[in-house]
Amino acid sequence: MSRVIVDVMPKPEILDPQGKAVTGALKRLGFDGLAVRQGKRFEVEIDGEITDERLAQVREAAEKLLANTVIETFDVRVEQ
C-alpha cells in the first residue's frame, strides 16, 4: 500500500475564520508571534504502485472534490 498526501489550504486572500480563532487562542495562551491558517490534510491510500497515472488521478480527484479551487489551493505529494 502506498500513501499520497493532499494538502488543501484556503487561498491567501480568502478570510480564514478558523485560523483566526486559533491564532487568537494561541495568543491568549501566551504563544506570542504565531499566526495560523488552517487547512485540511487528506491521506490517500493507493492500491499498488504509485505511478504518474496514479498521481494524475489523485490530482484530478483533488481538483474535482477534495478542494474547491474557487477558494482553496491544493498540493499533492507522495509520503516518504
Binding site: 480568502i14 478570510l15 478558523q18 474547491n68
Partner: peptide, 17 residues
C-alpha cells in the same frame, strides 16, 4: 449551486465565527 458551478463564487464560514 456554487459547488456545482451553476453560480459563481463560494460561501465560507461567517466572519463573526
Amino acid at each position: 449551486l456554487c459547488e456545482a458551478h451553476l453560480l459563481p463564487g463560494a460561501l465560507i464560514r461567517n466572519d463573526v465565527r
